[in-house]
Structures are given as structure tokens and as C-alpha cells.
Amino acid sequence: MITAVHTLIYSDDAPATRAFLRDVLQWPYVSDEVPEGDPEWLIFRTGPSEVGVHPTSAKDSSFRAERHHSITLMCDDLDGTMADLASRGAEFATEPVDESFGRIVFMKVPGADDILLYEPRHAVAYSLEG
């Protein structure tokens, strides 16, 4: 039986990325056995999750995307969440934008790619009983 989803972020500066997740996002974590030469190896609890599958192309438009995986964080109030995160040092790569699926913003992550943060307009699955 599958018990969870383990998401990976590959970072050019793993300690800075881990510090961002720990200090800015304030995700709870456990320390795992530290690999040789790595100062701190943390595994974070990310909370409820869901998986969506998006097409790489759309029949009625010129939209195309390469096959890939993406990390997206959801919130109930984008403006309030942005203000809270900014008070702890978060920086944003874009201004908030209205999309068909919700209000979005890209958040900078030290040493790694930006992460999409959004307030969904669609039904969510993360609160379904298991």
C-alpha cells in the first residue's frame, strides 16, 4: 500500500533551500542520517497533498509543454499568505496573476527553481477522506 508521496527538490545550494523550507515556510521536519560532507539532512512534512495530471498540449490552442513534474503550493488567501511569507524573508519572482484555475504567484527558493503558490478556484482533493 502506498502511504505517502515523497517530493524532491534538487538544489544548487541544498543548505539554503532547506533553511528556506524550515525558517520561511516553517515546515516541520525530521533529521535523517547525515551523508558525508552534508551539514544537515532534513526531511519535511508538507501537509495534505493532491496530484493533478495536465496534458502536454491542448487540442484547441497552440499550448505546448515539455513532459515534467512540478511542485505547487496551495493556500486559502494568496495576499495574506504572501504577506506572512514576506515577513519571514520570502521573495516573489512575479506579481500575483489571475488564471482560470486560481490566483498565482511564483516564489523564489534559494538554490532551486521558483515554486508556484496559488489560491485555487477549483474543487480540491486534499481534504477527501482516505
Rank of each mutant, 00 (worst) to 15 (best):
H6I: 13
R121C: 02
T72M: 06
G37Y: 06
F44A: 05
L78Q: 04
D12R: 14
A19G: 02
I2T: 12
D113H: 14
F44K: 08
R18C: 06
A86Y: 02
A90I: 10
R67L: 11
R22Y: 00
R67H: 10
L25Y: 02
V30D: 09
R121A: 13
F106C: 04
S31D: 13
T46R: 01
L42R: 14
D38P: 00
V109R: 08
S31A: 09
V109D: 04
T72S: 09
S61I: 08
T56N: 15
T3V: 09
V24K: 02
D79V: 11
F63E: 04
S61E: 05
V30R: 11
D113G: 13
A93S: 14
R88M: 06
A16D: 12
V24H: 03
T56K: 13
T17G: 03
Y29S: 10
S11F: 02
T56Q: 14
F44L: 08
P15Y: 05
G52D: 13
V124M: 11
G130K: 12
S11G: 03
I104Y: 02
V97H: 05
A65T: 13
E36I: 07
L21T: 04
W41N: 15
P48F: 07
D76R: 13
D84H: 06
A19F: 04
P55W: 12
